[in-house]
Design a protein around this nucleic acid. Structure first.
Length: 341
DNA sequence: CATATCCCCTGCGGGC
DNA sequence: TGCCCGCAGGGGATAT
């Protein structure tokens, strides 16, 4: 379940290992991975093949590789990626890559292209690049898209639950003239993510405006935190952690929260994500744990998420779990009083 | 227009 | 033993 810190770790890995490489070909092994692409797999392949990656950029949980021709001009085209909840981008260096052949665009031949045992991809989702190379036995079974670079290296999009996707997209200018995301100075971003707000670690984020827009909404504060059109990058885990730090229950109304309280909440959300990023960007998905062979580092730093019944680190009251928006929310019943209905 | 709900998908753990 | 259910999750599409 990659949120901002995990996606940023992937972005940094792509910046280190993929930028400068030219895409020789693309194999789409599962059509669902490119479902947002008008024209489907053929369109994506046609638009990416032959292009050189000029930057790896991220806004919130979205990331994209800009595809250049002229180094001076802002990139007009990008390969956009969202990892969904189980997506991974894995780099294979030439001596590690094993060519399984050309995939069928309709995905019918997926089984024929499974990675042979012993394959050694670099797991960018699990490491601060370019430090470690480790075998990933389970994840290679869900290879959805493979980019083959001209130098023999490959970039794999692996996604067990297929909530993630890739697409080629034309860029549009940002509405404020600031860079479109972290990782590039170009004031552009892919059109399909133009509605995604700047995230809490974006230097161009206008915090005052964010607080104002939040208070103008009539909704619950956790819904607001999770609304990527208001502020991006925050998912269920970091939302719960930020609310705990701010001593706010997720059902508090945004229009009734004081300005200072909201400012603190966003500061807390940014802080918790920075701390997670500092230890390598931890995911809490079972796949990740399997890959690492151990629980992620940041899991040890969680105050409430996934800790129902365990003591609140602040007051020792047992953490409560509630159903919210068809998913679980964790909070301290003593530190985070539920607002009156 | 703003806000809320539904649903896409796979693997796993728990209950019966 | 094995099946069924709930759960995990982001966000686009659809509904209110």
């Amino acid at each position: 379940m990659p949120e901002l810190p995990e996606v940023e770790t992937v972005r940094a890995g792509l910046a280190a290992r993929v930028v400068g490489r030219t895409v020789a070909d693309v194999d789409v092994l599962h059509p669902r991975a490119v479902r947002r692409q008008a024209g489907g797999a053929a369109e994506l392949v046609a638009r990416v093949r032959g292009r050189t990656v000029t930057a790896a950029v991220r806004r919130g949980k979205y990331l994209w590789l800009t595809l250049g021709t002229d180094a001076a001009a802002p990139p007009d085209e990008a390969l956009l990626a969202h990892l969904g909840m189980s997506g991974q981008l894995l780099v294979q260096e030439p001596d590690e890559a094993r060519d399984g052949g050309v995939g069928a665009p309709d995905g019918s031949a997926v089984a024929a292209f499974l990675a042979p045992p012993g394959e050694r991809p670099v797991d960018l989702t699990a490491t601060q690049p370019p430090t470690l190379v480790r075998t990933i036995p389970a994840t290679t079974a869900h290879l959805r898209v493979r980019l083959r670079f001209a130098d023999g290296g490959q970039l794999w999009f692996v996604d067990q639950r297929t909530f993630g996707h890739l697409m080629a997209a034309t860029t549009v200018p940002t509405d404020d003239g600031a860079p479109g995301g972290y990782g590039s100075d170009a004031p552009v971003l892919p059109g399909p993510v133009a509605h995604i707000a700047r995230d809490l670690l974006d230097p161009a984020l206008d915090r005052t405006a964010l607080v104002r827009r939040t208070r103008a909404r009539v909704t619950e504060v956790k819904r607001a935190l999770l609304d990527q059109g208001l502020v991006s990058g925050v998912g269920n885990i970091y939302a719960d952690e930020a609310l705990w730090r701010s001593r706010l229950h997720g059902t508090r109304r945004t229009d009734r929260l004081p300005v200072a309280g909201l400012r603190t909440l966003f500061d807390d959300a940014a802080a918790v994500m920075r701390e997670a990023l500092a230890v390598g960007g931890t995911s809490f998905d079972a796949l990740y744990v399997d890959v690492e062979g151990a629980a992620g580092y940041f899991a040890r730093s969680l105050a409430v998420y996934g800790r129902a019944g365990m003591p609140c680190p602040r007051c020792s009251a047992p953490v409560r779990r509630e159903q919210f928006m068809n998913r679980s929310s964790y909070s301290c019943p003593r530190c985070q009083r539920r607002p009156p209905v």
